[in-house]
Design a protein around this nucleic acid. Structure first.
Lengths: 335, 335
DNA sequence: TTGAAAGCGCTAACAT
DNA sequence: ATGTTAGCGCTTTCAA
């Protein structure tokens, strides 16, 4: 049963029923009695106004898309939770899309979201910039905000870590602990996140006149497999680095797996600093020294930017930067 | 620009444009030339048919809800990924809702989904059955399928693990390894999942004439905190059990944390079998013996059931049961 | 091969 | 305090 049928049954106009049901009774001076009557009847017949009809009329469905490269990654699932919560409190619901680190899929997903005329999109891109991606993106008739693996070329509102600073933070801790030969396990090198983190790392290393590049830098990709392969190269050499910085959350799985395979002791044989705090970071042996992102803050900022632009078109740009912190535990030795 | 405006520009009717754009040209014998013309113009003006209008007309938006108690839990995020993928290949997108283990929130979320007239709901409930929940549920004018923490009272299509069998599997392994005094860290005792798993455990224990209940059974809840509290009781006693079965994925975090706090060696001081394989299960020390759910299969079955009922109302019931398997690693000692 | 008309369910502007 | 009218953007008979 819909609003009109209910109206008929009550000898009222759909308008009045609509007003009563949407809590606008006050505003439109629908009599208290009428409101009660409508509410009671609606309850009885289980009438719930169809958001689709309302959405079409209003031109907004109250739904924003959330497109992430891997919901399975605990950083993104935490982010998803925070974003969903924030958005919900503002009356929006969220459509979840997982591109599985595949740029093709990502574009299809974006196109699909455009069709749906969502009220916005919070996008953590795979990280590679393709023509079709830009094309799909510019067609978007709604606000977009990019988070994490941002594409700075795109002139959209952005929220990300100060990745270079985070990279520096990691190296500096290692330097403070007396390490000099420092390796780096990278993620997808095409991604801004990875490039920036690495830039930070390299910057400090170079400034200190320490070795970098060559066999000290491995890995390319955000899959577990790519992490394992990179870790094999770094950990499988005869002259082991003193420490390794892992630039992403999947990579550390590879490092731990390979280290155990090779019977390497952390931090005895090699020290480790890993990006992304995870629920289990403190529980492995040794407890991991990690670089932690303020997930909650990223979510809040992203949603703020989203709301700031509601109603407007593709939206003004601007880069919101948040800071990482280091959680020092026991995976770094002092030498 | 919308379909009508485009039609005007082309001196065609909206009808024809709609047919061309929706790939129904063949079916309605729109001339090849016209179709081309429309496609070209649509491309040029970036016209993408509004799914909202279409949805209203067709009475379905091609979207199903996915409501989970904790997207942060790797079981649910894996499930979400698999479900989103399956659903997408059938032309549906998914609205993500996270109830954060809160029954109140859960109900609000369901009511919200009803408003939205989604085409279905895949629901992993918090696990407690309230009146308002049943109420909201019966109002649902779309197919619902329940997964994981099913509420069997509800007469809906269900997909779940054979939890009792999984519980038995865990104990049996412990018995095989010579353990007799076996503790159990439970999750939310109001949930079917937990009750069944525990039933399986207890059944075997009782049959073997082994002690159970009392201080051997702790924990109630699916939060990390409840896991820690339960673990403290089990691990903090003077006469330690020989082994502990952890009935849920959060609990094991508590066990590992408390064991390390108390300087307990696993499996030297106490053996552990934990529910839910996680990405890091093999990487902690010692590598964890786990009970693994076939996540992919659960997703596939749930989506199948969903599609089976499309178009129909609240849907026929039936319980699809899948089997757990044990991954034996090194957290169980032989005595 | 194409179009006209109606209507999906709702709300907002404009009466009364 | 309530109702009338119109229309959001699309698809679907039914007609030409």
């Amino acid at each position: 049963m819909n609003i009109s049928e209910l109206a008929e049954e009550l000898n009222l106009s759909p308008t009045t029923v609509s007003r009563a049901l949407s809590g606008q009774g006050e505003k439109y001076r629908v009599s208290r009695a009428t409101v009660q009557r409508v509410l009671a009847a609606a309850e009885k017949h289980r009438v719930v106004p169809d958001a689709l009809g309302a959405g079409l009329q209003r031109g907004r469905m109250g739904m924003v898309g959330l497109l992430v490269p891997d919901i399975t990654n605990s950083f993104f699932s935490s982010l998803a939770r925070s974003i969903e919560l924030e958005l919900r409190s503002d009356g929006f619901s969220v459509q979840l899309c997982d591109s599985a680190e595949d740029p093709e899929v990502e574009v299809e997903l974006i196109e699909q979201i455009v069709k749906r005329r969502l009220d916005g999109l919070i996008l953590a891109p795979v990280g590679r910039l393709s023509d079709r991606f830009v094309e799909a993106m510019t067609a978007a008739p709604f606000p977009v905000v990019m988070v994490d693996r941002i594409l700075p070329e795109l002139d959209l509102p952005l929220v990300s870590l100060d990745n270079a600073a985070a990279g520096r933070l990691a190296v500096k801790h290692l330097l403070d602990c007396g390490h000099r030969k420092i390796a780096c396990l990278r993620g997808n090198r095409a991604s801004y996140t990875d490039r920036e983190r690495y830039r930070g790392v390299e910057e400090v290393l170079l400034r200190e006149g320490l070795p970098t590049g060559g066999p000290l830098v491995c890995g390319d990709g955000y899959t577990r497999q790519s992490g394992i392969e990179g870790a094999r190269k770094i950990l499988g050499t005869v002259d082991l680095p003193e420490a390794v910085i892992c630039l992403n959350g999947q990579g550390i799985l590879g490092i731990l797996e390979v280290a155990s395979e090779l019977n390497l002791d952390i931090p005895g044989d090699i020290s480790v600093v890993a990006f992304d705090e995870q629920p289990w970071s403190a529980l492995v042996s040794p407890p991991l020294t990690t670089i932690e992102q303020p997930v909650q803050e990223i979510a809040t900022r992203a949603v703020e930017l989203m709301k700031d632009q509601q109603g407007r078109g593709p939206g003004k740009s601007g880069h919101t930067v948040v800071e990482a912190r280091i959680r020092i535990r026991e995976s770094v030795a002092h030498r």
